[in-house]
């Protein structure tokens, strides 16, 4: 037992480590992590996984059912669509595009959001007032509307959809970060630190951000969820489809017409989308709980 104790002491060096130890015990979250890893693997190696090019048409194999059903073909695991394209390959490439897009948006929004959020909380008087009023008015415009406006201005392509979504998610992120910082700032220990003449920006970077990890996880998870939903929604509505590749929402829109003939065409991308969002949410919940438990 004594050996084990020592081992544990070595392991738990930083708070992050401690959180990780707790997190590891959450079975559901760990499963979700593995699912996410699988998806990340798909993103990176999509080109090697697919058996067909997603735009390759086979006019001799139209609307085939998945291979386990009658008439299916092992060459096409999930069957084919109305142009004889391989559903499995399209799904894989769709996952790559959609998920990578959402991750990029999340990263970009988080990066700029953290900086701007910190900046917003350190601004004073007039400048702060202007910034907040601007944020207030931007926040009243629904994300979908903002995205549509940017698409009309910049033109409809997948890339522009990503820009549009990132821009429309940013104000929400800044506002949430700002609120978390404000609540933390009001706490007595911060006041004490302030008296120790720490500058505001230093405070935010060194003290506040580590202490608001829990809301931060929630906020970032929310950005990711919204990003993936908006990417697929815009794809579904027919924006950003004139590019070469494919995207889950666009696949659903394209296959919608054939739903009655071959339900897998709509079911497979939808369920995949659900699994992605679900596992990310489970992991985020897991991390949050781990942080809360660690704090206690």
């Amino acid at each position: 037992m004594s050996i084990n104790d020592e081992f544990d002491k070595k392991q738990i060096r930083t708070p992050l480590h401690y959180i990780f130890q707790i997190f590891k015990k959450k079975v559901a979250a760990i499963i979700a992590v593995w699912i996410i890893c699988t998806f990340l693997f798909i993103i990176i190696f999509a080109d090697f996984i697919v058996s067909h090019s997603p735009s390759e048409q086979n006019m001799n194999a139209l609307l085939l059912p998945p291979y386990w059903l009658k008439g299916g073909n092992t060459a096409y695991l999930l069957g084919t669509d109305e142009l004889g394209r391989d559903n499995f390959s399209r799904l894989i490439m769709g996952i790559q595009r959609t998920l990578a897009g959402a991750l990029i948006i999340t990263a970009v929004v988080s990066f700029f959001g953290l900086i701007l959020g910190a900046l917003a909380s350190s601004l004073k008087n007039f400048k702060a007032s202007i910034l907040h009023h601007l944020l207030d008015s931007l926040l009243t415009i629904p994300i979908l509307l903002t995205a549509l406006i940017f698409i009309v201005i910049f033109g409809s392509s997948f890339q522009n959809c990503l820009y549009a979504i990132a821009i429309s998610l940013l104000p929400q992120f800044i506002r949430s970060i700002f609120l978390s910082i404000e609540t933390e700032m009001a706490k007595p220990y911060i006041v004490a630190l302030k008296i120790d003449s720490m500058s505001d920006l230093q405070l935010v970077k060194n003290v506040i951000y580590p202490n608001i990890l829990e809301p931060l996880v929630t906020i970032i998870n929310r950005v990711f969820t919204m990003a993936i939903i908006e990417i697929t929604t815009l794809g579904f509505l027919g924006f950003g489809v004139q590019t070469k590749g494919t995207e889950l929402g666009a696949i659903i829109a394209n296959n919608f017409e054939f739903m009655y003939l071959s339900p897998i065409l709509v079911l497979a991308p939808g369920i995949t989308l659900f699994i992605i969002i679900f596992s990310f949410n489970v992991v985020a919940e897991g991390i949050r709980h781990a942080i809360i438990e660690a704090e206690q």
């Binding site: 939903i229 929604t233 919608f256 709509v266 659900f274 679900f278 949410n281």
Partner: peptide, 22 residues
């Protein structure tokens, strides 16, 4: 209950909408 809530949150709105008639 919380699992139900996360499932409800993770269902893509437009997809549920097109599946609803079926």
């Amino acid at each position: 209950i919380m699992s139900t809530a996360i499932i409800a949150l993770a269902l893509p709105v437009f997809w549920v909408a097109i599946m609803m008639p079926t």
